[in-house]
Amino acid sequence: MSELEAPTTDEAARPAGFVADVGREALDLVAAARSLWSVLTRTLHWTLRGPAEPGAAVQACYEIGNQSVFFLSVTMGFIGMILVFQSALQALRVVPDLTMLGATFLELLVRDLGASIGAMMLATRVGAGIAAEIGSMVVTEQVDALRMCGVDPVNYLIVPRFKASLIMTGVLIIWAGAVSFGAGAATAYFLFDVPVNTFMNTSLLDRGDVLIGLAKCVAYGAAIPVVSGWCGLGTLGGSEGVGWATTRAVVNSSLAVIVLNFLISSAGFLLFPT
């Protein structure tokens, strides 16, 4: 489980031997969980109670939106085309009727794929960006300088990005979902002659789907900056350390999205019997 290691452990400095390895991994995992928990609780504490840095969250909103809207539109557009294409082919094997194609696609998009694939992309783009920025500040001792001035780096560096991510993840995912649905509708129209009016069918969408989708937006929006900020703060060493931290941020925040997806989907499945 090397992915879940505390960023503060050094892979090079381990005694040999399988038992020692396993023991060390377990201790690392506990230490990692504790430091992640500490970052999470401090983020929540400062978000609710702390003095806000004026304008910092707005600036972070702008950055998150600006750096990822194009990327997210492209990837989600392609996802829409792929899924509609694939499911139309699958459906045609069974019944030559594509009237419910749009309705099924829309339900899947709202309930899961829009938020989850979109958040995987945000974990890649935004998560890596956060870790790279904070990691660079760690190796140049700017984070130590902050602490010397009585500033909690979590409050100063993570909280503005956390607030911005909570807002922007929702905004970006709704936008990207619309792009995805539009690309899907175009695919259905041009390749399978499904009229756009037929495709735009909301009959399968219910309250549960929307609630699950929104819950996912909030959960992913909260998880990505916390996990990648934690990876950034744990940076060790010079330029190689920043590279490592960025890598860890991508992997760990993607993993967080997948695990949260499973938990929320399961909870939603049990809570909203259709």
Binding site: A132, E133, G135, S136, S239, V242, G243, T246
Partner: peptide
């Protein structure tokens, strides 16, 4: 561009 450059490249 040094350590920040490495972070940006990975991103």
């Amino acid at each position: 561009g040094g350590a920040p450059g490495v972070g940006r490249a990975v991103n």
